[in-house]
Write a protein that binds this DNA or RNA. Structure first.
Lengths: 357, 357
DNA sequence: CTGAAAGCGCTTACAG
DNA sequence: CTGAAAGCGCTTACAG
């Protein structure tokens, strides 16, 4: 099916007895082609399996129909979901994806990646790197100087210099903590992600806000910093119990750490959820098979990825041939998370039965 | 840093007071440039941040310096490792990655994907789709008709029409089964992957071969087909125990299913590994935190991905400008797996203590 | 060591 | 409705 040697528009034109220009019209679905000519050209294209050289097309059109996607940690849950969604939506809209993976979110050679993508004439760039430490600052410097539209998605969303789409991480913290309190917990601990990650900070903030709003004190001894891994969750519970033995619920900032917390509880002979309720974040495939099945907060990552593509397509078309950068006041979209209740957390207690702290 | 408006080689040439041809020489590291000229041009390039338009370069060179990567299930363990490794190695060798994700390994519109990639003038295609049902047959038809080198990696490796790199899945089955037998098991069951997957078949074959080689009978009642998910592993053990209550070890064809088997054992009050030993495949991040920590077989997927890039680069350079396809007898490389022993399997029993069955 | 010419495979105005 | 000309931004021979 795929042609053996690459043929050009010239050969197709010759075979159809028309000019290359006319073939080009057919290729681009222009209306001003005589019905008979149209059929003849289409037939040749079909028979030969001709497909126009996108490099040449890109050169003349000033559009490559390629989206640059920059991501980190493709082997982790969030990034792989986002990239998958981006690719799917992009394919649907006629874009190919040029994928660049960054090894370390902090130290990635941003300039080099950006320059390379621009040299390849991508129509737009989707930046799916979590915000860690101060790696966000690049966007400020570059926000106005970039020759192509850029869209931030995921963990770096919400910063003020570029348009972005992300998940409301504070809401994640609130949802989880409210649920635990509703279940009757009075000492809700948190195992956070690494606190140089923006997402981790936001989830912590949600926990703190909720406790304060309900009249509880977000004690330091109820906070342990993890690093997203199972073992950090396990150690997290050990440490928390030392600091604050009254803990009766734990909000783990991702499902892996929640798994670690559950294991630690098993080892110590602490019943989950009877003695300690546990809530995670992500809803990984295994979550419903944990023991007990894990209550967790789902993030609409696929929606975020797809939306990012739709939005950058708008920016690309808005910028048009003029190569201008998007508006000065970029839009920030945050999508809401969703609580999934399973057996690792105690059922909601009717509020009438809960005494004020 | 990134330039605001895209500048061309012409402007760089003007600024340096040379012809575009000379700038091109500098860009391509040709030796025949006067030292003074070289410095002057390099200085202009550095100051302006100029980077040549890869579309134009690709058009003249007949090389895009892009590798097409076709994958399935990026949110699963294997594919994400392979794609990550491919990207890393490709970047190191100066290739960008054009990523295409296929929704269903069986039904993917192979022709369309291939044609699209060729239209984009990729220098080569890395096909990282597992072999499911008869989707392998396309490669036979296309093997010789493709205008670019193709390299198979992962689950479809080992088929005879295209060069490929993969993991020795039969060896995985052998390693796991031998280890279980060495631990004293006499009734080693297997929870397979979906049997329309080549990889799943091969692991099953390894299990069967090993049992027969050691004088055991690979009974049907010791075989249960899973679908890679945790719950299929769980149900797998229930069914296997019904069919064959004497089971004393289970080889689960991936770690997720192994987790399911362990859970089922917990629910039934069967001690792991005392009553039933369990071995998985993959060594996912959680494996060492299962309860008990999981013995598993590691696959060098990252090595396979990186090797695929190195090999396709060779093919690309060999094909040269002539656009010829690779040799008729393609090479097939299989990488060996590695057993990682943890606590879910019984320790090796000195062979002197094992009576022949 | 360096430059003027031609061309890669398309599309975009411009005629007719 | 259709074609001849010019050009997108580079590189590849070809002169000098």
């Amino acid at each position: 099916m795929a042609q053996r040697q690459r043929l050009t528009i010239r050969e197709v034109a010759a075979a159809a007895g028309v000019s290359t220009q006319t073939v080009s019209r057919v290729l681009n679905n222009r209306v001003d082609v005589a019905p008979g000519t149209l059929l003849r050209v289409q037939e040749v294209i079909r028979k030969t399996g001709y497909a126009p050289n996108m490099l040449a097309r890109g050169l003349t059109q000033g559009r490559s129909h390629v989206l640059g996607v920059v991501a980190y940690g493709l082997d982790y849950f969030g990034p792989s979901r986002i990239v998958t969604a981006i690719e799917r939506q992009a394919a649907e809209m006629g874009y190919a994806i040029s994928l660049t993976l960054i090894l370390e979110p902090e130290t990635g050679d941003v300039d080099h990646v950006l320059r390379d993508l621009c040299a390849r004439q991508v129509d737009g760039i989707i930046w799916a790197i979590p915000e860690v430490s101060s790696n966000r600052t690049w966007s400020r410097a570059q926000g106005e100087a970039l020759p192509v539209p850029v869209m931030l998605v995921g963990g770096m969303a919400g910063q003020p210099y570029l348009p972005s789409i992300g998940i409301d991480n504070t809401a994640i913290g609130r949802l989880a903590t409210e649920h635990l309190l509703d279940g009757g917990a009075r000492n809700v601990g948190i195992v956070t992600g690494p606190l140089n990650w923006w997402e981790a900070q936001q989830r912590l903030a949600g926990w703190r806000q909720t406790l304060e709003a309900r009249g509880f004190v977000p004690l330091d001894c109820l906070t342990v910093e993890g690093d997203w891994t199972v073992s950090s969750g396990e150690e997290g519970l050990y440490r928390m119990l030392e600091q604050c033995p009254e803990v009766d619920a734990v909000f783990a900032s991702n499902d892996q750490m929640a798994l670690g917390v559950i294991h630690a509880a098993h080892r110590l002979g602490i019943a989950v959820p009877e003695k300690i309720s546990v809530v995670g974040v992500d809803n990984i495939a295994e979550a419903s098979h944990f023991w007990p099945p894990l209550t967790t907060v789902y993030q609409p990552l696929a929606d975020a990825g797809a939306l990012a593509v739709k939005e950058i397509d708008k920016l690309i078309n808005r910028a048009g041939g003029s190569r201008r950068v998007q508006a000065v006041t970029p839009e920030i979209t945050l999508l809401g998370p969703m609580l999934i209740v399973r057996d690792s957390s105690r059922a909601v207690v009717p509020s009438a039965l809960i005494a004020a702290p």
